[in-house]
Each structure stands twice: as structure tokens, then as C-alpha cells.
Computed example of a mutant assay.
Amino acid sequence: MAPHTLLTTLRNIYIKIETSVLIILLNALVGLVFMEVIVRFFDNPTTWSVGIAQLIFMWVIFLGANRALRNHSHIGIDVFTNLLPSTWQKYVQLAVHLVMLVFLAILIVYGFEMTFANTGRLITGTSLGYFTVTLAIPVGAILMLGTAISQMGLLIKNLK
């Protein structure tokens, strides 16, 4: 199998796994919040559901952000860049990606700092460490960094 084909296959497998995890987590989040609404209505709230919902929500946010980045689904303001010649538009996209790389690198460093700072804390009503919530930040940023680097490679390739 050629390296390009192998990388494409692995990328497609990763995307399917990421999509499946996102679907499962989002359904779990909706189900959990719905369950909590019902039990609160009957005056019997749980102590753990808010913390677990926060955990799931953080992972959905950062995995979803990577998916949105990969699919170019983030909100973009292109009023001014559309006025530029197409070559300049590519340079602007490249500059934006460079800024994004710096931001994601900072997010990775401080995300891991936050994760390590929360190793002794537990999610309320559970025995799960709160670091599982904050770990979504650096992991999601690492995934987005890989996506951004890949997109930069394509931009550079298309500049020639």
C-alpha cells in the first residue's frame, strides 16, 4: 500500500472514530441533562450529573472544534479578504493559520498546566478526577494543531 493511500485510510478511520465519539457524547449529554430535568421535577436531583455533563460538554466542544476546523465550518469574516486577489487571499489564510498555530501551542501548554493542577480534585458526586475535564483542552488543541498544520501544507502546496 502506498504511503499516501495508507495516510488517507488512517485519516478516514480517525474521522469516522471522531464522528462516532462525538455522536455518542452528544447523545449522552442530551440524555443526561434530560434525565436531570425529570428527576429535579420530582424533587430528587442527583449530585453527579452536573459534573458529568460538564465533562462530556468539554470533550464535545474540543472534538467538535477540530471537526469544524477540518471542515472549514468555523465562523469567518471574509468581507475584506474577498476584495484581495486570490494569491493574496492564500497568503492571508496562511498568516491566519500561523496565528492559529501559536494560539494552539499556548493552549496546549496552559491546558496541560491546568490538567496537572487539577489532579487532586474530583468531579462532584463521583470518584472521577477533574483532570478528565481539563484534559479535553490540550488534547483538543493537539488535534486542532495537526489539522491546522495539514491545512497549512495544502495552502503552501497551492501557492506554487
Rank of each mutant, 00 (worst) to 15 (best):
T19S: 09
T19M: 08
S20T: 06
S20E: 00
V21H: 00
L22F: 13
N27P: 00
A28G: 01
A28M: 05
A28F: 05
A28N: 01
V30F: 15
V30T: 09
G31V: 04
L32K: 04
L32E: 01
V33A: 13
F34W: 09
M35V: 00
M35F: 11
V37N: 08
I38S: 00
V39G: 04
V39D: 03
R40D: 06
F41A: 06
N44L: 04
T46V: 05
T47Q: 11
T47G: 14
W48C: 04
S49A: 15
S49Q: 12
S49H: 11
S49Y: 11
S49C: 10
G51F: 10
I52N: 02
A53D: 08
A53Q: 05
A53M: 10
Q54D: 12
L55S: 03
F57W: 04
M58H: 13
M58I: 10
M58C: 14
M58L: 15
W59P: 07
W59Y: 09
F62W: 08
F62A: 02
F62H: 10
F62G: 05
A68I: 03
L69P: 00
L69W: 04
H74F: 11
H74A: 09
I77P: 03
D78E: 12
V79C: 00
V79A: 07
F80Q: 06
F80W: 07
T81Q: 10
N82G: 05
N82D: 14
N82Y: 11
L84A: 12
P85F: 01
P85S: 06
P85A: 04
P85Y: 13
S86G: 05
T87K: 15
K90P: 11
Y91K: 10
V92Q: 15
A95T: 01
V99L: 15
M100L: 15
V102S: 12
L104Q: 03
L104A: 02
A105L: 13
I106Y: 14
I106E: 01
I108L: 08
V109M: 09
G111S: 07
E113C: 02
E113Q: 10
E113Y: 01
M114L: 15
M114I: 12
M114Q: 07
T115A: 06
T115W: 02
A117T: 03
T119N: 13
T119G: 13
R121D: 06
R121F: 08
R121Q: 12
I123K: 08
G125F: 09
G125I: 07
T126C: 09
T126D: 04
T126R: 05
S127H: 13
G129K: 03
Y130I: 02
F131D: 04
F131V: 03
F131K: 02
F131I: 03
V133F: 15
V133P: 14
L135R: 03
L135T: 04
A136I: 10
G140K: 14
A141L: 15
I142Y: 05
I142V: 15
